[in-house]
Amino acid sequence: MLSKVFATIAVAITGSILLYGVSDFPAFGDPHSPANAGVPGSESVSLYFIEESYKDTKVPNLVTSVLADYRGYDTMFETVVIFAAGMAIFAILRVVGNKEEEVSREPVENSFTNGDHSRIIVGTTVRIVVPVIQLFALYVVAHGHHSPGGGFQGGVILGASFIIIALAENLNAALRRLSEQNYVRLAVVGIFIYALFGVMAQVLGRNFLDYGVLAPLLFTDGPEMARSHSMLGVEVGVAFTVTAIMFAIYANLSSRGQLEKGL
């Protein structure tokens, strides 16, 4: 009880200090704040991105061009962090062999729509909705240049579509569509796709992830379109890894590492 009192006091003090700090912030959307206009006497980074990113990369969505090109290194290792998180959960939870009890279940022909009424309703809805979700996920990945979206969001939505299958039926139904072997492969392949773009730029004599030099390989006329296309390739790699890891985390968490039955 006493610890709760102290915790409340600590939270109150920290919160008031943070709120006091907020009063020093520039106003929301202030064009003269250091983040927007740069430190006096030097060039503003955000101004450069706003003015030049379309000329540099021919990508209308500024966020995508910063994320996948100007800060491609950052995004690559974000993907690696997600991969490492998935592998850590795999290492902690996954139980290989030594099954607790082998329950022989009758293989049901179509377990989505067999069983009681609520299962029929949920199963049928999921069967109708999942293709739409997956198509939308691919759209989000591919259209990340022009609208909000990109590899992370699309990958999460694609992973969620497999999770929905696992929730509506059971984990095995989802694992039949994306098996353990395949999702680990998918995660690794995603990072390799990303790294490949970086290494190809290095092979052609530029810095790691400097896509502009890939123009002859991607059959484009000029470094701008090469950067745009490379960003798409990189986003696809991110989407692969995120899809696989999201589903892997769910599969291991929901079945206590047995990868059977699920919730």
Partner: peptide, 26 residues
């Protein structure tokens, strides 16, 4: 910040809730 909102909608409101529920059930 539509991109951030999109990520939060899919990760924060979507998948992480499912992961938390999966953990609660176990």
């Amino acid at each position: 910040a539509v991109d951030v909102a999109f990520t939060e909608a899919s990760v924060g409101a979507g998948v992480s809730t499912v992961l938390l529920i999966a953990t609660v059930f176990n």
